[in-house]
Design a protein around this nucleic acid. Structure first.
Lengths: 176, 176
DNA sequence: TGTTAATTTCTGTTTTTACTGAAATTACGC
DNA sequence: GCGTAATTTCAGTAAAAACAGAAATTAACA
């Protein structure tokens, strides 16, 4: 399978971005490829298109599946697995947010809570340090609380909210 | 300088998180250390405390300064540079957002715009692919537009907005 | 201006991460 | 159940990133 210049560019850039955000480049490229693909692809095709080893594709696909970004689909009369990505950017965005929250934010919250407890028991800890750790915890709790609320919103309201932007400030402060 | 158990834990965890988000572990640890520090530290102290080479500290400090997270300060009667981090988590958060936007989002927007242009000129490109690329661009534009609005808000309104969460939905849809 | 402290730059090394290709396993069709 | 296709696992290799220590540079001060 040969990619057009545009597709190539998209895939390569996506890979580049991935690696800046702690995502393996091949995984990111593969995701981009499946995102653009107009039909499910099999591992062989992917390996060939991206110019990486078949085994590498297998591993990367597993990774993407574990994120819930890619699903296996079957094609009539074909033994091979085929793979398909989510195609709605917003869906993709929220899936990634949710996963990173689970994998990174939640453990961080746990650690910070333990740190706060531990520092409360220890009179040696500088109050300023104590406060900074607490502030950090509070901050992350605010962010995750807010995120939990956002998740509940329907997509249309989300978009609306994003569009009205700063005007929200006057909604919140009717008198201001 | 010896860290308490809590400080150590905080610093190590921060480093761990950093590396998951594409930030060099030492850089992240160093940042955490300075964030907790109750007074500016010199490079020597930092190297000793974190157990890394002096040169590594120098490089990492440059990196943090380039992000605007850390500043040099001088102490009377001491020739050495001392370093100090921002101490407000929200400030830190926005500085990081802003920097990552500049370094990663903006170039991505440029690339996507070029991709869209190029794909409009090329009749060979599948319309579905064209649409997906456009959707991606639109999505990122919405996100950055919204972010630009948020930046304008004062901190108090930000917090308030975060706190009211989903209730905003009914504010936006008075009739719903 | 010479001496020393402080900092940065650079090169080679280590460590980590990513990847390949072979071998093993699994699934499938006959 | 046997043979083959498809997939996964694994061990070794390659590539990339991080790092230390030495050398070079810069800055301070006498």
């Amino acid at each position: 399978m040969k990619l057009s210049t545009v597709e190539q560019r998209f895939v390569l850039h996506w890979g580049e971005m991935g690696s800046r955000w702690g995502v393996n480049r091949t995984v990111a490229q593969l995701h981009a490829l499946l995102y653009l693909a107009t039909a499910p692809l099999n591992a062989e095709d992917i390996a060939e298109t991206l110019g990486v080893a078949r085994s590498n594709v297998s591993t990367s696909l597993k990774e993407l599946q574990s994120w819930g970004l890619v699903k296996v689909v079957h094609i009539l009369g074909d033994r091979r697995d085929h793979f398909e990505s989510l195609h709605d950017v917003w869906d993709i965005f929220f899936v990634i947010l949710e996963e990173r929250k689970k994998r990174e934010l939640d453990p961080t919250l746990t650690t910070l809570r333990e740190c706060v407890l531990e520092s409360e028991e220890d009179p040696e800890i500088d109050p300023l340090v104590k406060e900074r750790i607490e502030q950090t915890l509070q901050f992350l709790e605010q962010i995750t609380g807010w995120y939990a609320q956002m998740k509940k919103m329907d997509r249309a309201s989300m978009l609306k909210m994003i569009k009205i932007g700063i005007k929200i400030q006057s909604l919140l402060n009717p008198k201001g």
